[in-house]
Design a protein around this nucleic acid. Structure first.
Lengths: 159, 159
DNA sequence: TCAGATCACTTGACATATCAACTATTGACT
DNA sequence: AGTCAATAGTTGATATGTCAAGTGATCTGA
């Protein structure tokens, strides 16, 4: 007897079952990430920034007053960002970050969040946290810890 | 006593623990998806196509000889693709798909995979399947089924 | 039957991503 | 000191993504 199609299958309108659990898992991961991406993007859009820009602002807020050199910001990004320079250009143009070439190592550029930038991120914190929690709320409490652990293991396997 | 940092924390060089499991889960999901994306992209790059293009080719192969109208291809994509027309333009330019305006409904354009397209996808199937399975192999067998189920639930929660 | 709504794309304009040079500093080693 | 390699960005060219508006084709109801 045929299994009823999983949510992943339905989401890509696929009749046949997946070749393997690995295939289903990967498709699910990509699909979920795309959706989360779009929903989070819609959340930050009203203040005129993108998700990546929001990510940079959070990193710089976390870094405090000393700020961070450009490439260290890139290292801390959730998604790899080879265009970090121009990403920061746009944030600077909006007045949300400031940059200055460091005096002790003149190769590096120190990036800091501005007070306007701080205002912008703080306005987004609550809706964003609520969104994150809502995502995980879709699965029963007793499986949440296991999921986070499995995701961590997947991540470790990917280097 | 301080918990040793999780893989997710390390991957974004974050010292402090996450505000909530939901936050950690979302960061993990996005990070994993980005990595999977890049690795899969590197897999298909040698034959001169992108992941999205590979996704289209698989969809069209699955559709068989009748092919599919443009927007139905878009519906089956893993990641939403508002630029489906141009995506198909590129595949057509490479000779991997063919298109013709349908005669029964002249609004629609029927897309088919070409024999050259079939050759290209089939060359990628094995490495791609192996990759998918390798991703999931990072977690113990007894948790794999649970992970896939949880991912399905996350996905359902996102509409 | 025919005007208006809907559908299935297309196209143009613009933002962002990616990769490969290129520049200015700094570090390491003779 | 002086040369060579490695760093830390920056920039240009090109590809891709995204949104809004436009074009036929089809459907729907008076």
């Amino acid at each position: 007897m045929a299994q009823s199609p999983s949510a992943v299958q339905r989401s890509i309108r696929q009749r046949k079952p997946f070749r393997s659990p690995g295939h289903e898992a990967v498709v699910a991961l990509l699909k979920i990430a795309d959706l989360v991406h779009r929903k989070a993007g819609a959340l930050v859009e009203p203040v005129g920034i993108t998700q990546q820009q929001y990510n940079v602002l959070r990193i710089l807020r976390g870094a405090g007053a000393e700020g961070l050199p450009t490439l260290e910001v890139a290292e801390r990004m959730i998604e790899q960002a080879p265009g970090i320079t121009r990403l920061l250009d746009r944030l600077e143009a909006k007045g949300l970050v400031s940059r200055e070439r460091s005096s002790d190592d003149r190769r590096t550029v120190r990036c800091r969040i501005s007070s306007q930038g701080l205002r912008v991120v703080s306005r987004l914190d609550e809706p964003m946290d609520a969104f994150n929690d809502r995502v995980l709320a879709a699965i029963p409490k007793r499986h949440q810890r296991q999921l986070v652990e499995s995701l961590n293991q997947l991540l470790e396997g990917l280097d």
